[in-house]
Amino acid sequence: MISVRTVLVGLGLAFTAYLAARGLWWTSPVGRPLLVILALGLYLVTTWLCLFWERRPSRRSGDRDPAPRQPTVLPVWAAVLALACAVIVPSAISVAVGPQSRTELFATWYLGGIGVLMTIVMVRRRPWVAWSGMVALAVASILWMGVGAALALGLVGSIVWVASAQLLVASMNRAARDTSRLAQLQRAASAWQASQSGRQRERRVQVQRALAVAGPVLARTIATGGELDDEERLSARVAEGTLRDELRGPRLLDDDVRTELAAARRRGATVTVLDEGGLEGLDETSLAAIRAQLAGTLRTSRSDRLFIRTAAHDTVAVTVVGRSGASDGMSDEDAVDLWSEIPRDPEPPAP
């Protein structure tokens, strides 16, 4: 598929070749033909260098495919060469053809030619060089052929080309910025949508787990009109505690931890699970090791009251405190019969 850039480059190449050919179509004697040919050669070489020369971006092995190419900034040496061409060619052609032919078509081609060159320079993002070249073209053409002739024979059109190119480049820059901003917004929207989808899936899982835990107890309560025996009341308390665990500390739970929490409640212990932050930066492997160590701690515990909290600490991930006896005050150190700190990077459980 032919790109827009290829079409524009082809048009620029054809137009410069046409202007150069018109400069060689002499309809009257030329005093210094060699000077005309040298000026044409300088113009063609400079224009085609500005049209085609660009530094190819280096691609590393891990880079993605580059975006569609836009006109790159013209190198400084090429911009200086283009400005020198805008200064030299008009005077060289005017001197070479002589006073009697300076307004002939083969002698005024440089008005359009330098305009095309400065348009290319403008598109290659050298606006100051382009307008400096246009000033040089205007001064030289007015000095050699007069204000009226210069304006009538192509100077105005060249100025319009360069101004239009500047407006086009400004529009392209705005479009590129808008495209980048739109891409950022699209990525943010996609991330938000993915986050919402993840939360919806998590809520569905929690609802399904809640129904699985509390559903049988609720069904039995409704069926008996609230008249439950001791075992059913214990199951209801265990279900209530399990639901609280799912809401307050879901990142601490897996099947083994849930089993040990239920066993602790069935033997009469009061269990409180709180996730107060500190586990956000851990991967699944570290979380699995923490849960395995927590399950082992609960399995050996015989405390009447268990407090399980995450810790926003550099080295400690979870703190497990067990208390027994009649005292309710946390200041009573004798009542603390379990104190366990699970590190953020525990040893993985043995297979």
Rank of each mutant, 00 (worst) to 15 (best):
R60Q: 13
L74A: 11
T47I: 01
A39R: 02
A67L: 15
L38V: 15
T47P: 00
R69W: 04
W77K: 02
W53R: 08
D65T: 08
A78C: 15
S61I: 07
P75S: 13
R56M: 04
E54P: 02
L35Q: 11
T46W: 01
F52W: 05
R69I: 12
G62D: 08
L40D: 10
L42T: 11
C50R: 06
S61Y: 05
L40W: 01
V73I: 15
R55M: 02
W48V: 13
L74R: 11
Y43K: 01
V45E: 02
P66W: 06
R56L: 08
L51R: 03
F52V: 11
R60I: 00
L35A: 15
A67T: 06
L44A: 06
V45Y: 02
D65P: 02
S58N: 03
P68C: 10
L49S: 10
R60E: 13
V36G: 01
P75H: 09
P71G: 08
T72Q: 14
P75L: 05
A39E: 07
D63Q: 13
E54S: 09
V36H: 08
L40Y: 01
V36M: 14
R60K: 10
D63K: 03
W77P: 07
W48N: 02
L38H: 08
T47S: 11
T46Q: 02
L74M: 13
P66F: 05
L51V: 09
A67S: 13
L44T: 09
V36N: 07
P71Y: 04
Y43C: 00
W48Q: 02
G62I: 03
L40A: 03
P68H: 11
T47C: 05
D63F: 04
D65W: 03
S61D: 04
L74Y: 09
T47R: 01
V76K: 13
T72H: 12
V36A: 14
P66C: 05
L42C: 05
L49N: 09
V36T: 14
R56N: 00
S61V: 11
I37P: 01
T46S: 05
E54A: 05
D63N: 10
V36K: 04
W77A: 14
Y43M: 11
D63L: 07
E54Y: 05
L51H: 07
T46R: 04
R59L: 15
Q70A: 14
R60C: 00
W48R: 00
L49I: 03
P66H: 01
R64S: 10
P68V: 14
T46F: 01
L49Y: 08
R56V: 12
V76H: 14
P75M: 09
L38C: 07
L51K: 03
G41L: 14
G41S: 14
P68M: 07
T47V: 08
R55I: 00
R59K: 11
L51P: 05
P71I: 02
F52L: 15
D65C: 00
R59M: 13
G41K: 07
R55Q: 12
W53E: 06
Q70S: 12
P57A: 12
L40K: 00
W53T: 03
Y43A: 05
